[in-house]
């Protein structure tokens, strides 16, 4: 008698069973938890430093967001995200997305997943969602700890925007949430880049490093005036546009443009990752 059983579950249920397993794998891994804790420590340390220096001569120095933190704890969220964007968040994204496929390949688990069988497109999707979830967790851990530490150290009040206008606490909190979501979405392009690199190698560290390098190089290119023509298309060019949400009238064109660039990077590198992964010989 053939052992082929009727599918025991719907396709959607089967997908989520693997997706849950992937999320547990990504979010339960000790290395990743340490990363999240490290990111969560940033707002805590920043808050404490600002708290103890607020009445000294150092008070008020540094970037714009930093000066506002002592007046309103909500700004600790924004200031922490701002501090993490250039390096810590790209590093975190690099580790999560670079590890996605290459990590399975180097552990020898990729060949076993594929012979289960898991379709390669489905596996890539599951891996992408896992890496995105980790990116979201990274940004969220900064935001949540920033909010708690900010509220505890400085209290939360009506928000004075960068433009000088003041909005209510509720509206201000919503704007800070928008900042956090925008930053999260700004990282999706880098996730796609990391995922692509992850399909090229069996050495996860290589894919991770390459991903971080892309973010850094993009940041460097963004500072060279001679290359201003390509600046708008750079992966990192629009990352700081989250500041739009702190103006009385956010420029939705700027925000939409930033998200569109991310969507383009996701589309291009997602397609590259897919075409590579679905055709490559798995010899790991």
């Amino acid at each position: 008698m053939s052992l082929a059983e009727a599918p025991a579950q719907s396709t959607a249920a089967a997908y989520w069973r693997l997706q849950r397993s992937e999320l547990r794998l990504v979010l339960g891994r000790r290395r990743n938890l340490v990363l999240l804790l490290g990111l969560a420590a940033v707002p805590l340390l920043l808050g404490l430093v600002l708290f103890f220096t607020q009445d000294t001569a150092l008070d008020g120095q540094g970037p714009a967001f930093l000066g506002r933190v002592t007046g309103n704890g909500l700004f600790l969220v924004v200031a922490s995200v701002f501090l993490c964007l250039p390096f810590l968040l790209p590093l975190t994204i690099g580790i999560a997305s670079g590890d996605a496929i290459a990590g399975e390949a180097s552990a020898g688990t990729l060949r076993y997943l594929l012979t289960v069988p898991v379709g390669r497109t489905r596996l890539l999707l599951v891996k992408a969602v896992g890496a995105l979830a980790f990116a979201a967790a990274a940004v969220a851990s900064i935001a949540v700890v920033g909010l708690i530490a900010g509220a505890a150290l400085f209290g939360v009040h009506d928000v004075t925007l960068l433009s000088g206008d003041t909005v209510s606490l509720g509206a201000g909190a919503l704007r800070v949430l928008a900042v956090v979501v925008y930053v999260g979405l700004s990282l999706t392009g880098l996730v796609a880049v990391g995922l692509f690199f992850s399909t090229l190698t069996e050495v996860p560290v290589g894919a991770m490093a390459a991903t971080v390098v892309v973010a850094i190089v993009s940041g460097v290119l963004d500072t060279i005036p001679a290359l201003s023509a390509i600046h708008p298309a750079l992966l990192t060019h629009h990352w700081l546009d989250f500041a739009e949400f702190l103006r009385i009238e956010p420029d939705w064109g700027v925000i939409g443009g930033g998200l569109a660039v991310q969507a383009a990077w996701v589309a291009i590198f997602g397609a590259l990752a897919w075409s590579r992964f679905t055709t490559a010989d798995v010899t790991s």
Binding site: A8, T11, A14, L25, A107, T109, R111, V116
Partner: peptide, 28 residues
């Protein structure tokens, strides 16, 4: 195929659960 391959930091049982979760046709 070419030696076993599992996640080193997961237990033996958790590794099997992972593979079973990947199987669309297996009964959870």
């Amino acid at each position: 195929v070419e030696g076993p391959g599992f996640h080193p930091y997961l237990t033996g049982r958790a590794n099997l659960a992972r593979l079973d979760a990947a199987d669309q046709t297996s009964d959870a």
